[in-house]
Amino acid sequence: MTAVTQTAPRPAVAKRRRRDLRSRVLTPYAMLLPGIVLFLAFMAAPILYTVVLSLQTVKVEGLGLGPDSRSVVFAGLENYANSLADPEFGASVLRVFLYGLIVIPLMLGFALLFALLLDSKRSRATRFSRVAIFLPYAVPAVISSLLWGFLYLPSVSPFVFLANLLNVPVPNVLGPNLVMFAVANIAIWGGVGFNMIVIYTSLRAIPSDIYEAARIDGATEVQIAWRIKIPIVIPSLIMTALFSIIATLQVFAEPTTLRPLTNSLSTSWTPLMKVYRDAFTRNDIYSAAATSVLIAVGTFVLSFLFLRVVQRRAFGQED
């Protein structure tokens, strides 16, 4: 929008404009330098490096003894083929998929419900509730996994205590069948408050005269929530959903922290745990790199929508 539409300027003006242009180009780039350098060093370079590693493998000659017997060679897409064919990888992806199906609808459903209740004029104790429900966001995933991990132990769990009083048998939540729910609960606990605040913020942005009219017409709070408020916060819901998908794909801290308390979590329980194990326990950084790239591509495919929504909504009018 700057120079394109203007006609050819006179020589003196042209000279000044050239100097102007130089400072207008150099100054912003100089000021962006810290951001660009950090971005290149800690985001672009690692990504490129992962791609390079993923295309290589170690070739062992002879018995694999001696310094020259092992060499790094180009492997093409072999690592990718191996990763995709690895049943452990498939199982971990499936697990994370099921995990996401539990976590995301429940977490966002409760977040929306609590946000609507906070916004409703008929609720009481809203200030206190808002702070209390948001509080888990202040607790790091490792610490929350640790707290819930203890609460899952039969000798500590208040639910087991209650069930014993009532003589009801209780299933072991850390057993192989239920451990998925045990991990999911930790994620829901940690995420409900944050997502509630996101949705609540966009509810507060709605001018209240919009539903004043509906109230005059006799609409109930539930009708107003369902017909007016929810449709308006849909963009926020899409956003939180996509952020949640990204977070789900990289679940690592919760199951890793819980592992000492249960035998039901394998070292490749989630894709990222498998990458960690391959890279550091098995010293196979090449196949770990290929698996990382697959996870990243999966994340990109799933969050492509997010980019479009954000760009259109936030910057559509500015550029």
């Binding site: 800690f42 985001m43 690692p46 990504i47 992962t50 990204i246 977070a247 794909l249 990289q250 690592f252 990222l272 990458v275 960690y276 890279a279 950084i285 770990a288 790199a289 990382s292 996870i295 990243a296 994340t299 990109f300 969050s303 997010f306 980019l307």
Partner: peptide, 9 residues
């Protein structure tokens, strides 16, 4: 969109 966790390794 790039999860920082994937960059860590």
């Amino acid at each position: 969109l790039v999860p920082s966790v994937i960059l860590a390794i």
